[in-house]
Nucleic acid binder design. Structure first.
Lengths: 253, 253
DNA sequence: ACTCCCAAACATATCAGATAACTTTGAACA
DNA sequence: TGTTCAAAGTTATCTGATATGTTTGGGAGT
């Protein structure tokens, strides 16, 4: 079986491919996320193929991220998210550290654009979401610095949430999905970066200060300033990650 | 079955998931693209499961774009490309025209970065590839303008090839994959854009002129100028697409 | 009436064995 | 040497059966 350029599963003479194509089309056009597919038995009789063929087609679509499968339950149409892209990245990155920095480069570009667009387009709700994430960081900073691991994790989650809120406020759905996928992949890198923070004497308050600056620019509708602040913030983060990685390398030798 | 955050297929209690995870790991670490997987029968005995279980796991990985399957042949490890991401985009875009412009926005950001990085990093071979694509456009422009459809298609292909060569010359593999995936999705939009060209009195030579400017900046190692030229070129393209779409809408009414 | 629990119905997960159809390979033949 | 073709290898699909998880509706107990 071949996956064709159009994204369809070439099913010339392949029952599984035909069924998968048809199901994919139906999922994308007629079904809403959260809806259930008919049972395997019903699909089998509808397409006049065996249950096995249906199962393989459904597996194929699950692999593409269109369906969630669980034992005892019908297959459920998946809410679109960045997972498929994240899987794609996983297939490319493996353990390559160059790929990590490639990814950071791409993220920088996309987040700068997110901030720029957010400054132009964010509505009240979008700005409120960004503010709320920032407040979460502020509320947990003290405890995190004192060594409370739960607060530390909350701080980190709000940090990611801040960036995600900006991606969403950009009004560009694709940016949102890409952010989600990349942030999954970067989670490891970010943890390294926070160790880097400690090494460089950064404090969580520095991070907060950067975020405040970004938020302020977005609130003021200053697209250029928002993008530039984001760029500098991420450049900082990138440097931290580089330092942390070289420290790890040093300790290894 | 669930797809977990790490991109692995959660196989808690699921034979298919376990096998798929293990195979995926082996594919990514031990096998090179083009290599064949063992036969289903051999895998079945290796994992001590039935052939069916192997088949479903393989289907899952094929859906994720890791394997190519064909009847009568062993499954082949796929050369990484943008297809998985392209499929992902397909599941998001369907027929939404807003999504098309979302995509154009993202592409602009990524291609500007590609041009910027290419100016910094492109080696002789990379620049030669860009030049070669540009030459292809120049060689086909006259015939294309005179109405030769084959030359017109070649011109278009070289146009895409020019942008792809820049993405590759950026030295960032992820940018290359993303470009490939997005260009598949944008093919339709680009065709509309070329109709827009005609409407706005643009000529293919204008396109060539833009490309020459971009190439010159890359050759000179002027990152800022390369990025800016690319940005303006794509802004132009975006406007053409907008005009073409509104023309289509006008004709429809 | 209301709540809790459990068994039956439903649905997926996996196995086993068999046939069909396609690809590759190597030996026989011209 | 080159071509043909049959056999072996491999995937594609079907049928039918068992195991295991989920949902649901009715009955027991309060």
């Amino acid at each position: 079986m071949r996956i064709s350029r159009s994204g369809s599963i070439s099913g010339r003479g392949s029952a599984v491919g035909d069924v998968a194509d048809d199901l994919a089309h139906e999922i994308l056009t007629a079904l809403t996320p959260g809806a259930s597919l008919p049972s395997e038995a019903e699909l089998a009789s509808r397409y006049a193929v065996s249950r096995l063929t249906i199962r393989e087609a459904v597996k194929l679509l699950a692999g593409r991220g269109l369906l969630d499968i669980a034992r005892g339950r019908k297959a459920v149409v998946r809410v679109p998210d960045g997972t498929a892209f994240s899987d794609f990245l996983t297939s490319l990155l493996h353990n390559d550290s160059k790929s990590l920095f490639d990814l950071i480069e791409v993220r920088l570009s996309l987040e700068v654009q997110s901030a720029t667009l957010a400054a132009k387009r964010a509505n009240r709700a979008g700005i409120a979401a960004i503010e709320s994430a920032l407040r979460g960081m502020q509320d947990n900073a003290d405890a995190a610095i004192k060594g409370d691991p739960a607060a530390d994790r909350r701080f980190h989650d709000f940090d990611v949430g801040f960036h995600e809120a900006i991606a969403l406020a950009s009004g560009n759905r694709i940016l949102g999905y890409l952010f989600e996928a990349m942030s999954t992949q970067l989670r490891h890198g970010i943890q390294i970066s926070r160790r880097g923070h400690a090494n460089r004497g950064h404090t969580l308050y520095d991070t907060i200060a950067w975020h405040e600056r970004i938020l302020e620019a977005i609130r003021a509708g200053n697209a250029r300033a928002a993008g530039e602040a984001m760029r500098q913030h991420l450049k900082d983060t990138e440097n931290d990650i580089r330092n942390a990685l070289s420290n790890v390398a040093d300790q290894a030798t």
